[in-house]
Measured scan of single mutants.
Amino acid sequence: RVIAMPSVRKYAREKGVDIRLVQGTGKNGRVLKEDIDAWLA
């Protein structure tokens, strides 16, 4: 299970990103909004 705040999950869904593919850089591997942006870049 991916650790991410609900707002980040929603952001990823809106961008069409599968959050399971994104490498989290936050505490304990948490996926941050910046990680979604970096994955899209």
Score class of each variant (00 low, 15 high):
1 R>S: 08
1 R>L: 10
1 R>M: 13
1 R>E: 14
2 V>S: 04
2 V>D: 10
2 V>T: 07
2 V>M: 03
3 I>A: 05
3 I>K: 11
4 A>W: 02
4 A>P: 04
4 A>R: 02
4 A>D: 03
5 M>Q: 12
5 M>A: 14
6 P>Q: 15
6 P>L: 11
6 P>K: 12
7 S>D: 11
7 S>T: 10
7 S>G: 09
7 S>I: 10
7 S>H: 13
7 S>E: 14
7 S>A: 15
8 V>N: 03
8 V>E: 14
8 V>D: 05
9 R>G: 02
9 R>F: 08
10 K>I: 10
10 K>F: 11
10 K>Y: 07
11 Y>K: 02
11 Y>V: 02
11 Y>A: 02
11 Y>H: 06
11 Y>D: 01
11 Y>R: 03
11 Y>M: 05
12 A>V: 01
12 A>L: 02
12 A>S: 08
12 A>P: 01
12 A>T: 02
12 A>Q: 00
13 R>Y: 13
13 R>T: 10
13 R>K: 15
14 E>R: 10
14 E>Y: 07
14 E>K: 12
14 E>S: 08
14 E>M: 11
14 E>N: 07
14 E>Q: 13
15 K>Y: 12
15 K>L: 10
15 K>Q: 10
15 K>N: 07
15 K>S: 09
15 K>G: 04
16 G>W: 08
16 G>I: 04
16 G>H: 09
16 G>T: 05
17 V>H: 00
17 V>E: 00
17 V>N: 00
17 V>D: 00
18 D>L: 09
18 D>Y: 06
18 D>W: 06
18 D>I: 06
18 D>V: 07
19 I>H: 03
19 I>S: 02
19 I>G: 01
19 I>M: 06
19 I>Q: 01
20 R>Q: 12
20 R>W: 13
20 R>F: 14
20 R>I: 10
20 R>S: 14
21 L>P: 02
21 L>T: 15
21 L>R: 06
21 L>H: 12
22 V>F: 04
22 V>H: 01
22 V>Y: 01
22 V>Q: 01
23 Q>R: 10
23 Q>Y: 12
23 Q>T: 12
24 G>V: 03
24 G>W: 02
24 G>K: 04
24 G>T: 03
24 G>S: 10
25 T>G: 05
25 T>K: 09
25 T>F: 04
25 T>N: 14
25 T>D: 02
26 G>K: 05
26 G>A: 08
26 G>R: 02
27 K>D: 13
27 K>C: 09
27 K>R: 10
28 N>I: 08
28 N>P: 01
28 N>H: 09
28 N>A: 13
28 N>Q: 15
28 N>T: 06
28 N>W: 12
29 G>L: 09
29 G>D: 09
29 G>M: 10
29 G>N: 11
29 G>W: 06
29 G>H: 11
29 G>E: 07
30 R>V: 05
30 R>D: 07
30 R>H: 14
31 V>K: 04
31 V>R: 03
31 V>H: 01
31 V>S: 01
32 L>A: 06
32 L>R: 14
32 L>D: 05
33 K>Y: 06
33 K>G: 05
33 K>N: 06
34 E>I: 13
34 E>D: 15
34 E>L: 10
35 D>R: 00
35 D>I: 00
35 D>S: 02
35 D>T: 01
36 I>W: 00
36 I>M: 01
36 I>S: 00
36 I>N: 00
36 I>D: 00
37 D>Y: 06
37 D>V: 08
37 D>L: 05
37 D>P: 01
37 D>T: 07
37 D>F: 04
38 A>T: 15
38 A>P: 01
38 A>I: 15
38 A>L: 14
39 W>S: 08
39 W>L: 14
40 L>R: 07
40 L>V: 11
41 A>H: 09
41 A>E: 13
41 A>P: 05
41 A>F: 15
41 A>C: 10
41 A>I: 13
41 A>S: 15
41 A>D: 14
